Amino acid sequence: MTSTGRGTADATTVLTDDGVRLWAARSGHGDQPLVLCHGGPGLWDMFGGLADSLADLATLIRWDQRGCGRSERCAGPWTTERFVADLDAVRRHFGLERTALLGHSWGARLALSYTLAHPERVSALVYVAGTGIGPNRDWWPGYRANLAARLAEHPARAARFAELDARDDLTDEELRESAALQWSADFADRDRALEHARALTDPWFGINGACNRALGAETERLRGTPQLHAACAALDVPVLIVDGARDIRPRTAVDSLERALPRVRRVTFEDAGHLPWVEEPAGFRAAVAGLTGGNGGTGAPILGA
């Protein structure tokens, strides 16, 4: 998942090297570029509100990953390598020699993968609510248990979600309802959780299940390897890790990534869940604005103060 808000942006079409058309948009007027990578896999950019809040700090580039959202429906391929190449196509389309990246959830993994592949093209990485570089067992069982527990706080919602989740013949509107119910568990503010979650489904583009399943299986194979750990340990790019302490994905899963990175700072918001910029907007903006490193080693903020 990603964010609430739609934002005002100039939309365009990015053509990948294998001929797939991607939706992308540019907004903001800051001096530095910042490319946003949405969550999923299989979802779409929901960063409009975040882009609005950062508009004076950076020129924001948003995009829908292949086969998702407003991008062209296609048959994949659904691999991290392919998505890294797509992200590079977005970079080239907007004429960016070097850019900061912000990725959320699955998008954090994608942004990290791109940074490892092309460190010379990345000025800084903001890694938001990811799940680290260890094996899935570090977080997946805890996530499933926490999801069930948080949904159970509202028995009617839990019952309705269970009813929908058990069926394989859902209408598009029921799929949308099921997503909102599940995503409501991602917010710490339980009074506004369903409101926030429903905002994520407006507009609704549907979830690309094939994309989600394929990239999920690939993640299971690639995480926790010595090669990934070594690549992170050698990464000479400043990284900001941002967490919500009440994310139902155990935050301890990110500890291995934090330990591996040589240039890292971590900010945790105690009263936020999986989307910390929604529940802690001022603090999130301040954290991103104060990201330091690079710039010839001066330690000056990359996105401004």
Rank of each mutant, 00 (worst) to 15 (best):
M1E: 12
S3G: 14
R6W: 01
V14Y: 02
L15K: 12
D18F: 00
A24P: 11
L34E: 04
L34H: 04
L34R: 03
L36H: 10
G40L: 04
L43Q: 13
M46H: 15
M46W: 07
G49R: 15
S53L: 03
L54K: 14
L54C: 04
L57D: 11
R62N: 06
R62V: 05
G69D: 14
S71W: 07
R73D: 05
A75G: 12
R92L: 00
H93F: 02
G95S: 12
L96F: 02
R98H: 03
L101W: 09
L102P: 12
H104M: 06
A108M: 05
L110M: 09
A111W: 06
L112K: 14
S113F: 01
Y114L: 00
T115R: 03
T115Y: 05
H118C: 00
E120I: 00
S123L: 07
A124T: 15
A124N: 10
V126A: 09
V126W: 14
V128G: 14
A129P: 13
G130H: 13
T131Y: 14
G134R: 13
N136P: 14
R137G: 00
D138T: 07
Y143A: 03
R144M: 03
A145C: 02
A148N: 04
A148Q: 09
A148R: 06
H154D: 09
A156E: 14
R157Q: 11
A159G: 15
L164H: 15
D165G: 08
D165V: 02
A166T: 08
T171R: 15
R176L: 03
S178G: 13
L181T: 09
W183D: 15
S184Q: 12
A185M: 07
A185S: 13
F187M: 13
A188S: 15
D189H: 10
D189T: 08
R192M: 10
R192T: 11
A197P: 13
A197Y: 11
A199Q: 15
N212H: 11
R213Y: 01
R213W: 00
L215R: 11
T219H: 03
E220T: 05
P226H: 01
Q227S: 09
L228V: 01
A231P: 08
D236K: 12
V239G: 06
L240H: 11
D243A: 02
D243I: 02
G244D: 15
R249S: 07
P250L: 02
V254F: 03
L257D: 06
L257W: 07
L257P: 11
P262Y: 02
V264H: 11
V267P: 10
T268C: 07
E270S: 13
G273Q: 14
H274M: 12
P276T: 08
E279M: 08
E280L: 03
P281I: 04
V288C: 02
V288R: 10
A289V: 06
G296N: 03
G297H: 05
G297M: 00
P301C: 00
